[in-house]
């Protein structure tokens, strides 16, 4: 096998590899869609986070604006403290509302942010005061049964 032909083959090989990697990054992965670089961190307290996990998406009007950084349990107040990284490009007012939603009936859980009306914006280290817990299916069902029962009385 002469050298030039061999080099050409190896060149083609490497090129296919690079194309595949680019394909994985662009078409399969999320390198293009929501690439979050610089962030600021805020926290939010929840009574119940349901199945929320670190790295779960944080959405504003359905657009991914950040990710859950960490979830810890506060042993003094007995609630969960969730830290959220939000992309610097997106700003939210101080009185923003944080809800835990479920994508679809059995989907993963995410945090939805609903902007309030205040003029000052959230900054690094701030805390979102108004939160709504995750909907726990068992609670929902028992609530439903309870109201049904009370209606019939």
């Amino acid at each position: 096998m002469d050298k030039i032909k061999l080099d050409a083959w190896v060149g083609i090989f490497v090129a296919i590899g690079v194309i595949s990697l680019l394909g994985l990054a662009m078409k399969v992965g999320n390198l293009t869609s929501n690439d979050i670089r610089e962030t600021y961190m805020v926290t939010a307290n929840f009574e119940n986070i349901g199945g929320l996990k670190p790295r779960a998406p944080v959405k504003g009007a359905g657009v991914v604006v950040g990710r859950v950084n960490s979830i810890v349990f506060d042993t003094e107040a007995y609630h969960a403290i969730v830290s959220i990284d939000i992309d610097k490009r997106y700003v939210f007012p101080k009185d923003t509302f944080a809800n835990i939603y479920t994508a679809g009936l059995l989907g993963e859980q995410y945090i939805g942010l609903e902007a309030g009306g205040e003029e000052k914006n959230l900054e690094q280290g701030d805390r979102i005061i108004q939160t709504q817990d995750a909907v726990v299916l068992e609670k929902l069902i028992s609530q439903f049964l309870y109201t049904k029962a009370s209606e019939e009385e």
Binding site: F13, V14, S20
Partner: peptide
Amino acid sequence: IAMPILASIFSMVGV
């Protein structure tokens, strides 16, 4: 060098 290239190709072709 060849292994990650082959693995990338494998994943892409598999998808």
